[in-house]
Design a binder for these strands. Sequence first.
DNA 1: GTCTATATCGGGATAGAC
DNA 2: GTCTATCCCGATATAGAC
Lengths: 233, 233
Amino acid sequence: MTRRPSSRDAILAAAVAEFAAHGFRGATVDAIARRARLNKAMIYYHFDDKLALYLEILRGIFSVMRDRSAAIVASSTTPREKIAAFIDALGSEADARPHLPRLMMREIADDARRLDPPTLRIMAGVFQNLRAILDEGFEKGAFRRVNPMVAYFQIVAPTLFFRAAAPLREAMSRQGLAELRMEASAFSENLKDSALQALAAGRPEAGTRAAKPRRAPEAPAPKARSATTGDRP
Amino acid sequence: MTRRPSSRDAILAAAVAEFAAHGFRGATVDAIARRARLNKAMIYYHFDDKLALYLEILRGIFSVMRDRSAAIVASSTTPREKIAAFIDALGSEADARPHLPRLMMREIADDARRLDPPTLRIMAGVFQNLRAILDEGFEKGAFRRVNPMVAYFQIVAPTLFFRAAAPLREAMSRQGLAELRMEASAFSENLKDSALQALAAGRPEAGTRAAKPRRAPEAPAPKARSATTGDRP
DNA sequence: GTCTATATCGGGATAGAC
DNA sequence: GTCTATCCCGATATAGAC
């Protein structure tokens, strides 16, 4: 049943690993061929060139995440649970495809210069899905009105960074500079906790004020205005 | 007074830009020389090789951030204000040296494989400084006890990602896929707001308890244990 | 300190046999 | 579909004149 991967699939699998490890430029077609246990010519038989191979990989990876997040939007749970599910999906996706975080970071560092419109569209879909969850939360009064893009970066960036930085964390830990070892799942749990706390709508607020001005007068307290413009308190 | 940069300085300045734009491997010594308006041989006169040049740049960049964060730790303000200052410092540093975010992301994606112990030590210093701020906040009861590393990634990753992703955001905005344009300073303001909200110590809680077991036995809402292990609620 | 060659090699891409 | 052999450019690093 485990269908033997066609040479094309073998190339794709090898290429993801090489592109993630060395970047588009750093990855060599020779190394991809070697890892796929094929020869270089086979790659040019299946793909126009190195760039076409690269783009096919990116599109595939982001499509999965776009579809998973779309399913979360459509699910029938609370906005809070959807945010948690979004973080879980992103994390488990990154764990299942360990190359995703580095690929994404590299392409961004390369000024996204290789992303064509179709690929951009797919990536934008992920953002729009998170935005849909947030909007639902805003309307239902479950979330305070934060800027959706900021929320997006607050969720996606740490998730990718933490995983991509595993070797860096390991090196620092090994040298006794800081204890940075942690399970990816544990990180996601902490992130969910923090993200939901940051999104929490103004507490019970109305009538239920059991203990009057909960906040000391001198404490400015985080304002909950629409944070689209970054005005300071 | 604006001292004409020595050839060595010119090389360093050109190299940062090239390394940030293309990565260690992608950057060419020829391009660095061209940008510095010098010839290639001058680079090998001042530096042993491409790697030595690269490492000198990384050390310089992270040292600045380490020192700035150390000054914040030592300043006499509240933990909340120190967190805000840390985020501002990181943001303004990234704005002043637009190459920092991409350099950092690239080196992480490269599995930090080129970082030698001295450089790791400098980078760890930045984390330890944030940790010191958090510890102070924990002790004073200003912050709930979150995992310091998670907090570190929640602050650093979005700050770097947002800035490095400027071209990607611009491309998506231009194509009408999403409006992602935003001033870096506005982003930092939003991030501060969110981070402080996530760190806000548990409200007076149920019984309006003024003192004593500040924590509910079953720990309902955000659990405030030292979140080193990521157990779920 | 600054320059112009140049040695040398790795890597993308192709030709063409089987 | 799969392979070997090869073209050829670009990139690191050095030699050596001024």
